[in-house]
């Protein structure tokens, strides 16, 4: 089809009224996805958005692509079956912190471990929105909610560390309101061949407003964000003079020009390193000791699950020819009754 060349954002907007709360961070993410998809040169009918349950999982209804709003936590599993059986499709999973990390934790880690070629967008708002404000597996300790009136006592997941631990070949983080950064991150995810895991900090202005204000606020932004750029030293701060260097087996925040630190001491970011150890260190770099890293943590070239599964089938057929049902039914020892 030649139509693809002329696709625009409008082509990806469905006729459904968007029904998130006014001010919800999901709007910005929807806008970013709708602006990236037409750029990819892929016919619209090849896109499938698969979601689970939660506010974020309404996403497919607002996209004029194929869409499957599945059940709680299971989107990665449905997407796996779809992608393995139809590698020609462009399959994106939209999920939230409750959907992906609580009820669906098992499917998430196994999808990443297998490197199934689906893009997983995890909208992390650190709260349950759709069920009205219970704490989530990414809520900070001490979170007071309807289900934890005295504050939650369990430690949150670190989604990126979890994804890296599961062997994810592509891991990135962005923020709903960092529109340009988000669009660029989605582009990188789209270009990746195996599983792409993108954590998107998303503000739920109803149940967990300003959860990310510590880093997204105008005054805080420069000092609280560490933008990861492949091949560039890790620097941050309003004057760009602060940075990250390796110290023993950990990371350390330093200031260039202080204590003899020069720019050469800073860690130069390699997002394509085959080994995920440094990416893991960065995933564990959390405030207040560190600025929050955003951008591409890891993009390693690894064969996708579906290409190998299909490869086994194709090479078998190539070697032995397509199976004959007649002979299959008569395989093994047979005898004839006249």
């Amino acid at each position: 089809m030649s139509e693809q060349a002329t696709l625009t954002r409008k082509d990806f907007q469905s006729d459904q009224d968007v029904r998130w709360c006014p001010g919800c961070g999901d709007y910005a993410i929807l806008k970013a996805v709708q602006s990236v998809f037409p750029e990819l040169g892929i016919p619209r009918e090849k896109f499938v958005i698969v979601s689970g349950i939660g506010c974020s999982s309404r996403f497919p209804y607002y996209m004029d692509t194929y869409g499957f709003h599945t059940i709680h936590g299971r989107a990665p599993a449905v997407a796996t079956g779809l992608k393995v059986s139809r590698p020609d499709l462009e399959v994106w999973v939209v999920t939230g912190d409750g959907d992906a990390l609580s009820i669906g934790g098992n499917h998430l880690i196994h999808t990443l471990r297998r490197n199934v070629g689906v893009k997983i967008l995890l909208f992390n708002n650190r709260i349950y929105g759709l069920t009205k404000g219970q704490y989530s597996p990414t809520s900070e300790i001490g979170k007071k909610t309807g289900s934890t009136p005295l504050g939650s006592v369990d430690a949150p997941f670190n989604p990126l560390a979890l994804a890296l631990g599961a062997g994810a070949s592509f891991v990135a983080r962005s923020v709903d309101i960092y529109q340009k950064h988000l669009v660029e991150t989605l582009r990188q995810a789209a270009a990746h061949k195996g599983s792409a895991f993108v954590e998107i900090y998303q503000n739920c202005n109803i149940f967990n407003d300003a959860a990310f204000a510590y880093m997204t606020g105008k005054a805080e932004r420069a000092d609280a964000n560490l933008y990861l750029e492949h091949g560039k030293p890790l620097t941050f701060g309003a004057d760009g003079d602060r940075g990250i260097r390796l110290s023993g087996v950990g990371l350390e925040v330093v200031r260039v020009g202080e204590n003899g630190v020069t720019e050469d001491d800073l860690l130069v970011w390699d997002a394509h390193a085959p080994n995920a150890a440094l990416a893991s260190l960065l995933a564990h770099a959390t405030p207040p000791a560190f600025p929050t890293p955003v951008g591409l943590f890891r993009a390693a070239a690894q064969p996708s699950f579906e290409s190998q599964v299909v490869g086994q089938i194709e090479s078998t057929i190539e070697k032995q020819g397509s199976g004959s049902l007649e002979s299959l039914l008569r395989a093994g020892e047979t005898w004839t009754v006249d």
Binding site: V50, F68, T70, G81
Partner: peptide, 28 residues
């Protein structure tokens, strides 16, 4: 039975197994 184009997927659990089958059905 790969010769017959059969795809088998040993999933991480029973739920993933049926969900993957549903995804494949959706895909035809």
């Amino acid at each position: 039975y790969k010769q017959f184009g059969v795809t088998t997927f040993q999933a991480e659990d029973e739920i993933a197994a049926v969900c993957a089958a549903i995804g494949a059905s959706y895909g035809g």
